[in-house]
């Protein structure tokens, strides 16, 4: 697994993808930070993280699009699948590599608030809660991205498909608002809404069910990725 992790990290930074991702992340992230705190003259943590959720929904599909699509297209997956490495270890290596790039950039961008703390009072627990929220959502997005990437040889299709699924998860939350209060579907949509749960984390409500929800979404999509590979072998 470690070999695959290393190779993925290398691939991010010997191609343009890693740099492009980091460049956009820090450019937009910096801009959002300036807009939500410095420009608005507040030390509000949540709105920065709210924007970063939307930003991640758009950029993470680009980070994950190559993971399996490229291997499949160039047939290098044959090397991985005939090597003494299990399918879960292969998926794990790729997942961790994407997560390192994402998580690393999120952690670095949270340093903005350390700087800000010199000029304003920052609620540290709230900041930590927000950080955990973004890191959890990112985990789910990456798992979705890897799953879609395992379905197609086409990187563009992979990115667009991932965005589609993420968008559906976001839209479910908005849709639930349109439904009558007592309707059961509203309850189901609310529970599935990535955005709704994210909001509750950002506001400082730290619920285990929410954390469990993000972990389950990630686990389900990673498991589906495993199934894709396992099934392909049997076809």
């Amino acid at each position: 697994m470690f070999a695959i992790y290393k190779r993925e990290m290398r691939a991010f930074f010997t191609s343009i993808i890693g740099y492009a991702y980091l460049f956009t992340y820090f450019l937009i992230g910096g801009g959002v930070f300036c807009y939500t705190t410095l420009y608005s003259m507040t030390a509000d943590v949540s709105s920065f993280f709210q924007y970063m959720l939307l930003f991640s929904a758009v950029t993470l599909p680009v980070l994950t699009m190559k993971s399996f699509s490229e291997e499949r297209k160039t047939r290098t997956e044959q090397l991985l699948l005939t090597a003494p490495v299990s399918i879960p270890a292969m998926i794990g290596g790729k997942f961790l590599a994407c997560y390192t790039v994402f998580g690393g950039s999120v952690l670095v961008s949270s340093l903005y608030f350390v700087l800000l703390s010199r000029y304003a009072v920052i609620k540290v627990l709230l900041l930590l809660g927000n950080l955990v929220a973004l890191l959890l959502v990112g985990m789910a997005f990456i798992a979705i991205g890897l799953f879609v990437s395992s379905l197609t040889e086409n990187q563009l299709a992979s990115a667009v498909g991932t965005f589609g699924i993420i968008f559906a998860f976001l839209a479910i939350g908005l849709l639930s608002n349109l439904l009558p209060n007592e309707y059961w579907l509203r309850y189901v949509f609310n529970s599935l809404s990535i955005f709704g749960r994210y909001q509750s984390l950002l506001s400082g409500a730290f619920e285990f069910s929410t954390i469990f929800y993000y972990l389950s979404v990630s686990a389900v999509f990673l498991y589906l990725t495993f199934r894709v590979y396992d099934r392909r072998r049997c076809q």
Partner: peptide, 8 residues
């Protein structure tokens, strides 16, 4: 088809 990574 040899499974090679062109970027290595």
């Amino acid at each position: 088809q040899p499974p090679l990574y062109g970027d290595m």
